[in-house]
């Protein structure tokens, strides 16, 4: 097996929050199949908090574990708090990632950020109307 921590194996074998949200408040998609990993995050926002977070991921064990961990870390947080989740903090929560996996598979925080940005820009658009 790739040298994955127990935490990574746990999140890979029992990923939390897999799926899509119907009528999400924000969607963030990162990566492409050429580089190996693709992640889509869906968020539901209530009173400035992430009420629900779900994801779909195409990729290796690390990519799946990262997505699951990000979803768990983000759920219930305020948008500002959730924006502070970084690839480093995700890797730390997962008790480390193999070096070569750190950059390619650790896209979860970025995807979540994109989903939040998507929500914020939609809100802005609505406010203008």
């Amino acid at each position: 097996m790739p040298v994955y921590s127990e935490k990574v194996m746990d999140h890979f074998t029992n990923p939390r929050n897999v799926g899509e949200i119907e009528n999400p408040d924000g969607v963030g998609e990162v990566g492409n199949p050429v580089c190996g990993d693709m992640m889509t995050f869906y968020i539901k926002v209530k009173d400035n908090r992430l009420e629900d977070v779900k994801f779909k991921t195409f990729g290796c064990g690390a990519a799946i574990a990262v997505s699951s961990m990000v979803s768990e870390m983000a759920k219930g947080k305020t948008l500002e708090e959730a924006m502070k989740i970084t690839p480093r903090s995700v890797a730390d929560e997962l008790e480390g990632l193999p070096k070569q996996k750190f950059h390619c598979s650790n896209l979860g925080a970025q995807a979540l950020n994109k989903a939040i940005e998507d929500y914020l820009s939609k809100k802005k658009g609505e406010a203008k109307k």
């Binding site: 097996m1 890979f12 580089c35 190996g36 195409f58 990729g59 799946i64």
Partner: peptide, 26 residues
Amino acid sequence: EFIEGESMLMLLNSKGIAVSSGSACT
């Protein structure tokens, strides 16, 4: 199609099956 080799390899391993993959991730 639609899935990645390393994750398949790892789940097969959890069932006691050893294989390999030519995916980028592996």
